[in-house]
Amino acid sequence: MNSLADFVLVSAMLFGIGIYGLATKRNALRLLFAVEIMINAANLNFVAFGQFLPFAQAAQPSALGQTFVLFSIALAAAEAAVILAIVVVAYRLHQDVDVSELKSMQG
């Protein structure tokens, strides 16, 4: 039988991996991967806390958690499309996907 803590621990691991990726990677696409992994960790937490009983009693928050995750997934899809477009434009302008080289907007 799975407990709530198992899912929360997986979510913590995914979040840690996402932070590692955001901190070390310089390729813009890898940063997108890291952000997607972190969004998935958050979604997993939402559904997990919504499904288990003491949290799921009043007015069926289980459905509420799932509803928010549906919204979150749709938002993440929009975000991925915009990031990919920005990466393509940045590549066309600078011939590079290294984010530490994109300094034209640096103050």
Binding site: S3, A5, G50, P54, A56, S62
Partner: peptide, 10 residues
């Protein structure tokens, strides 16, 4: 959280 195992699926 480890003692919480009962789900209430929507």
């Amino acid at each position: 959280l480890f003692s919480i195992t009962q789900t209430n699926p929507a």
